[in-house]
């Protein structure tokens, strides 16, 4: 589990670094970005995991989201892994932008040929945290997770499937109900097979319905002018309805005029960092 530093840039008195390592879950080399705030030089810091959306690598978030200042201020380590295994030479891997490479959907695939490498859920929930905790000054008890679009979906399911593991969760324009949307159906049928009941284990709206455990305070921002919202890919209303029914606290903010891009993320990233800091630094 040797880490190979790919890059390191000073940023707001901390360092934005990129590492590469051989993943045991994914059976390939994979990179992740990590921001170490200045506070990490002297003490252990909480970790926030960011899951990116379709087509993204670790680079998108660390170069576009402008989270560094807030993370530095609140003393948060921010880890941004890649979105799928890469270079596994699986047939059809590169065929479409919403399946295969760059579209791991944060599930553990059960279908051939994906099931060997496409174990992003285990990677994000187990292997990566172990790696981070083993190599950086972290406080393992204080972690949280957030993400965008497919990563929003990933963040929600990680939090909902592991009550208490993540102190809080937030999302930008998440795919809230993948079973019901084209992207989700395509990916889940590919990775998990045709049995739709198996899909429910990776569907936030379904997971909420059975969620019990420690209180989650979910913050969701959604651009009102998001083309994927109107295309029915995100379906936040379903999730909110489920949360309302199950009394899961959600603040859902429909932001007038914003779309699905990183410009939207950059606009509200500070609110989300504060939201996480509130629970991680409490």
């Amino acid at each position: 589990m040797a880490l190979k530093q790919i890059s390191s840039n000073k940023c707001f008195e901390g360092y934005q670094k990129v590492f590469e390592h051989d993943s045991s879950e994914l059976k390939c080399k994979i990179r992740f970005g990590i921001y170490l705030p200045p506070k990490a030089e002297t003490s252990k810091c909480p970790v926030v995991y960011w899951l990116s959306g379709l087509t993204c690598t670790e680079q998108n978030f660390i170069t576009k989201a402008a989270f560094h200042q807030a993370a530095a201020e609140h003393g948060l380590i921010v880890v941004a892994p890649d979105t799928s295994p890469r270079g596994c030479n699986i047939d059809g891997e590169e065929d479409s932008w919403d399946f295969g490479t760059g579209a791991g959907f944060y599930v553990n695939a059960t279908e051939d040929p994906w099931k060997t490498n496409y174990r992003m859920y285990s990677y994000v929930v187990e292997e990566l945290p172990q790696l981070i905790n083993g190599n950086f000054p972290t406080d393992p008890d204080r972690i949280s997770i957030f993400g965008h679009s497919m990563g929003g979906h990933g963040a929600l399911i990680c939090a909902l499937k592991n009550p208490g593991k993540y102190k809080t969760v937030s999302a930008f324009a998440p795919i809230c109900n993948p079973i019901q949307c084209p992207w989700g159906q395509k990916a889940f049928s590919g990775y998990l097979g045709s049995d739709a009941t198996k899909w429910e284990a990776y569907d936030a709206t379904y997971l909420v319905k059975t969620y019990s455990g420690s209180q989650l305070d979910i913050l969701i921002d959604q651009g009102k002018d998001d083309q994927f919202l109107s295309a029915g890919q995100l379906l936040p209303d379903n999730f909110i309805a489920a949360c309302t029914e199950r009394k899961i606290p959600v603040v859902f903010r429909l932001q007038e005029g914003y779309d699905h891009s990183y410009f939207f993320i950059t606009t509200f990233i500070n609110d989300h960092i504060k939201h996480h800091a509130k629970y991680l630094n409490a």
Binding site: K224, I240, C243, T244, K247, I248, P249, V250, V251, F252, R253, L254, Q255, E256
Partner: peptide
């Protein structure tokens, strides 16, 4: 069907939904 919470100033409110 639901509770609506508006954060009003100058007669306008952002679209915010609160589940609880």
């Amino acid at each position: 069907t639901r509770h609506r919470y508006e954060f009003l100033h100058c007669g306008v409110a952002p679209d915010i939904r609160i589940t609880i």
